Computed example of a mutant assay.
Amino acid sequence: MKAYTRKIVWWIFTFLCIVIGLYPIIYFIIDRNFGLLQSKSEELLSNPLWNTAFYTHIILGGLALLIGWTQFPKAFRDRNRKIHKKIGMVYVTAAFFSSIAGIYIGLYATGGIVSILGFVSLGIIWLGTTMMGWLTAKKGDFDSHENWMTYSYAACFAAVMLRIWLPILMNIYQGEFIPAYHIVAWLCWVPNMLVAFWIVRRRKMASVLKFT
């Protein structure tokens, strides 16, 4: 990939992270009866525990998405180690609580077992990769830390891909929400993890070649 193409991809990536990271604000300035909440029952929408988990998930998930992309440029990390560490701790904290809340609300995902498994799996993977990223940093294994956090942010980026894929799938299924939601519950994150795997593998190969 040429340098200018990489820059374009990076700026598109950054723009999407910021826009969707700020997206939860909408729930506080207009009637929340829109988007995915339209598929929920009145009973669930009035459940205090579900609402606590929902707002924890979207607010902290939005924060994680909003700040996480800043951690990837190597030049920034090298020049701002203390800032990198502080942002990283905010990201890990936000991801920890958002993923746990996401696992809980995933149990109530519209569309039954297919959607539930997709979103609960996403929450578990986001939680697990984030915690591994934190633990490897604590141990000073920064190569593994970078790799685990790449997977973590790939899971976090599912928030972006869900909002890209769902309208496309709704159009394919001529407005039928359930079949589109069944697919997006997996499509929003599985390809992300494959891309993360490719990035990590490429990074490892580059490291091996560097020392041979």
Rank of each mutant, 00 (worst) to 15 (best):
D78Y: 04
L166T: 12
L162P: 04
G128W: 13
A75E: 07
S152F: 12
I164H: 06
P73E: 06
M131Y: 13
A137H: 00
A94T: 04
L162C: 01
G140E: 09
I105M: 14
Y153I: 03
Y91W: 12
P167D: 08
G175W: 05
Y151R: 13
I116R: 11
Y104L: 13
I113P: 04
G118T: 05
D141V: 00
A75S: 12
R81P: 02
I168P: 13
T150L: 10
I125D: 01
G112A: 08
W165L: 12
T110I: 03
L122T: 02
K82L: 12
V120N: 08
C156Q: 12
F119R: 00
P167T: 08
T129M: 14
D143S: 08
K85G: 04
G88H: 11
V160H: 04
S121G: 13
I125L: 15
G118V: 07
G140V: 00
M149E: 02
F142H: 07
I83K: 13
P73Y: 07
G123E: 10
F119G: 04
K85C: 05
T150Q: 06
A75R: 12
M161Q: 09
S144V: 00
G140Q: 08
G111R: 03
T150C: 14
G175L: 09
L127P: 05
M89R: 14
R79P: 00
W148G: 11
L166A: 05
M89A: 03
P73C: 04
M170G: 02
R163H: 03
T136N: 07
Q174K: 13
S121F: 03
I83F: 05
T130R: 03
F97C: 05
C156W: 06
V120F: 05
L166G: 02
G128K: 12
G118F: 10
R79W: 01
Y104R: 10
G128C: 13
V120M: 10
G128L: 14
V120C: 07
M131S: 02
I87E: 00
D141F: 03
D141Y: 05
N80Y: 13
T130G: 15
F119I: 14
M132K: 13
K74V: 11
G106L: 11
A95V: 15
I168W: 07
